[in-house]
Amino acid sequence: MAFNKSLAGYFDDIQHIGMPTDDLKATVDFYAGLGFKMQGNFDTDNQGNQVVFMIVGHLTLEIWTGDGAVHETGAINHISLNTSDADAAFKAAKDAGYNLKDAEVQHLDFWDHGIKFFNIAGPNDETIEFCEIVKG
């Protein structure tokens, strides 16, 4: 597919890599053993499912329960790119003809002021998330 516009300039770095787990404690303990430190822990649905963010150096992992782990190569669910304006990036992606996986920008109450994000599909059906951590 040829894109009439680029999304270059709508993100500045990788934000995180996301993966589901069946055992949050074991997964957190494993990555803690590799040197990752927990940065955030949030309830995702008021039914006991959680999401944990862990960081080492410049790499952040998003690990969550409720979707089931793949338990094979391909266990990574998505790559998230950091954007300072999810709404503008969404419009640019839509205008450029990218395969949007979301009909609109999504909102969640993570961190102090929430996040805004949307997902596109890559050429191999990989999910690429554009995520904005909302500032005050």
Rank of each mutant, 00 (worst) to 15 (best):
P123S: 12
V70I: 11
D29C: 05
Q50D: 13
G40E: 13
H107C: 08
V52R: 03
K25M: 05
L24H: 07
S84N: 04
K116D: 07
D109W: 08
P20K: 11
A89G: 00
Q39V: 07
V28N: 10
G74R: 05
K37W: 04
T127V: 15
K94N: 10
E132A: 10
G122P: 01
D43P: 09
A103Q: 10
I120Q: 02
F30V: 04
A92H: 11
T65W: 12
F53D: 02
K5V: 02
K116P: 00
H58Q: 15
D67W: 13
D112F: 13
V52L: 09
S6W: 14
Y31S: 03
A92S: 03
W64T: 00
A93T: 07
V70E: 15
T127N: 04
K94Y: 03
F110M: 06
M1D: 11
L61I: 03
T73E: 11
G18Y: 00
E104C: 09
A75S: 14
V51D: 00
K101N: 09
H113N: 14
G35F: 08
S6R: 13
D125V: 02
S6T: 15
N119Q: 12
G9A: 07
N4W: 11
Y31G: 09
T83N: 06
D67E: 15
G48D: 07
N99C: 01
G122Y: 05
D13C: 09
K5M: 06
H16M: 03
F42N: 08
I128R: 06
L108Y: 11
D23E: 13
D125M: 12
L59R: 00
D125K: 15
N82C: 05
D22C: 09
N124W: 00
T44N: 02
C131A: 05
H71T: 06
M19N: 05
E72W: 12
Q47G: 14
T27S: 15
L7Y: 14
A69I: 03
E126P: 01
L61H: 04
H78W: 12
G33T: 01
L108H: 03
D67Y: 12
I115S: 01
D43V: 05
D109Q: 05
D43F: 01
N119L: 10
L59V: 14
G48S: 04
F3T: 08
D109L: 03
